[in-house]
Design a protein around this nucleic acid. Structure first.
Length: 409
RNA sequence: GGACGGGUGGGUGAGUGGCUAAAACCAGCAGACUGUAAAUCUGCCGCUCCUUGCGGGCUACGGAGGUUCGAAUCCUCCCCCGUCCA
């Protein structure tokens, strides 16, 4: 169980506030912290996640890290997997109805989620729950009663519903149920605090209200900003391909972080590292004054993040490797290898066979545009015959970052 | 149940019989410049075949049929979405 040696409420609050977008309401949180400090009873803090995607990326970790902060202070972290609600689909931020997930998908995703969240949370002190535990057992009668606690007009206030209505896009009735059912989670868990991304604000507020309807003290809501993805504009998400997966290998993770814009780097510092805010501000000023090169600041960021998932050693190696490949324009020390039957083939089919190009047309395009290097030399002849003898090692490079060594067998 | 509007490439969205593999924009990819940053510039951006050419073939505009020398564009039926009325 959690340690009883809490820090004073004010100190806790200051740490918790870092990076937070909004706390509703801050006085209530302070009050709850103070009470728990007096009684030695930890707060129940929960984060509900729908296992809609098979992997966790940095975007998810923003809120997870906040949950860990609570955990580090001795509070009870509840990680709730929305295995039931995922099958309804959260309408938040959706411009159309989501295709519902199947039971199998949900179970598979839940499994990988659990494997991955403990890279951030402390497993021993985390209470893992599934909302099918109570939602799956609700009778129609209970559902009707739950629904009677909320008004349609209030439901339609939310931005995603309103804009869909305006644009004449469909809204299915079951989508209205989402915030209500997940509100029941908060009731079942008797939570003191719920965490979520800012886009979850509406849902979280419904949860708080419903808790009160069920005679519980309303939970405090702490929202975290949404992490902008690698493209610098849209939120980080797997489907947009602008994400850094937390299981990405160190080198890839490092490279992806280095590719973000300079402005975005400060947000990443704030939301993805434990650097205290004043330190981040100082770094920012140093860059502005020209004392610190933005690239070095970014290298440090990349290092810190990679180290938190893969360890100091791996992060250091990833950094060196990065310098080698992109500053010194050398081939990386470790190139993936692929075995290929020996023989003579035109260059374009070498690219499609190895998967470096997805189609012949693409292969031709890449070659003609000078994006293909064979054995260190740019090759622009599409049909250049490539001879591969058994035992040959042939280094290939496509674009700036794809390397492959073909081995003749 | 009725009346009306709509369904186009990864996205937005033009196109109402041939000049349309389908405008434009976004996203994406390659190259130049760099700090694999941003911005900018250049080119590409369905698949495939070869003699790599402003070349040939195939597939594509919700689905299935049809009219036509020729259809994303016209007709019929069906499916899906929305609006209004009940």
């Amino acid at each position: 169980m959690a340690a009883a040696n809490f820090k004073p409420a004010n100190e806790q609050l200051a740490l918790l506030r870092k990076g937070a977008a909004e706390i509703i309401r801050e006085e209530e949180l302070k009050e709850k912290l103070a009470q728990s400090f007096m009684s030695g009873k930890p707060l129940r803090v929960y984060l509900g996640v729908d296992p809609t995607a098979p992997d966790i990326h940095l975007g998810h970790t923003v809120v997870l890290r906040k949950l860990r902060h609570f955990q580090e202070m001795g509070h009870t972290a509840v990680f709730l997997i929305g295995d039931f609600s995922a099958m309804i689909g959260d309408p938040t931020g959706q411009s159309e109805t989501r295709p519902p997930l199947t039971r199998e998908q949900v179970e598979k995703h839940s499994e990988t989620y659990l494997k991955q969240v403990f890279k951030i949370l402390d497993k021993k002190n985390t209470e893992v729950r599934f909302n099918s535990e109570w939602l799956g057992k609700m009778s129609s009668e209970e559902i009707v009663r739950l629904c009677s606690h909320y008004r349609l007009a209030r439901m339609l206030e939310r931005e995603d519903f309103r804009s869909r209505l305006e644009k004449n896009q469909p809204i299915s009735v079951h989508e209205l149920l989402y915030p209500l059912l997940t509100a029941y989670d908060a009731v079942a868990l008797k939570s003191d605090v719920e965490l979520g991304a800012t886009e979850q604000k509406f849902n979280l507020l419904v949860h708080r209200e419903i808790q009160r309807e069920y005679g519980l003290p309303g939970q405090v809501i702490l929202t975290m900003p949404i992490l902008v993805g690698l493209d610098g504009t849209r939120k980080m998400s797997k489907s947009l391909g602008n994400y850094v997966g937390i299981t990405d290998p160190p080198g890839e993770m490092f490279g992806k972080i280095m590719s973000i814009t300079d402005e975005l780097m400060w947000q990443y510092y704030e939301l993805l590292t434990d650097f205290p805010s004043p330190v981040i501000v100082r770094l920012q000023e140093e860059v502005k004054m020209g004392v610190l090169h933005p690239k070095d600041a970014k290298m440090q960021l990349a290092h810190t993040i990679v180290a938190s998932f893969h360890g100091e050693e791996a992060a250091k190696k990833a950094g060196e490797e990065f310098q080698l490949v992109f500053r010194d324009r050398q081939a990386p020390t470790e190139i993936p290898e692929m075995r290929l039957t020996w023989g003579t083939r035109p260059l374009f089919s070498l690219l499609t066979e190895t998967g470096l190009a997805s189609s012949r047309s693409e292969a031709e395009r890449l070659i003609k545009q000078g994006g293909v290097e064979v054995d260190g030399h740019v090759e622009k002849d599409v049909k250049r015959a490539i001879v591969l003898n058994p035992g040959d090692l042939l280094p290939l490079r496509v674009g700036k970052k794809k390397f492959l060594r073909v081995v003749g067998v």
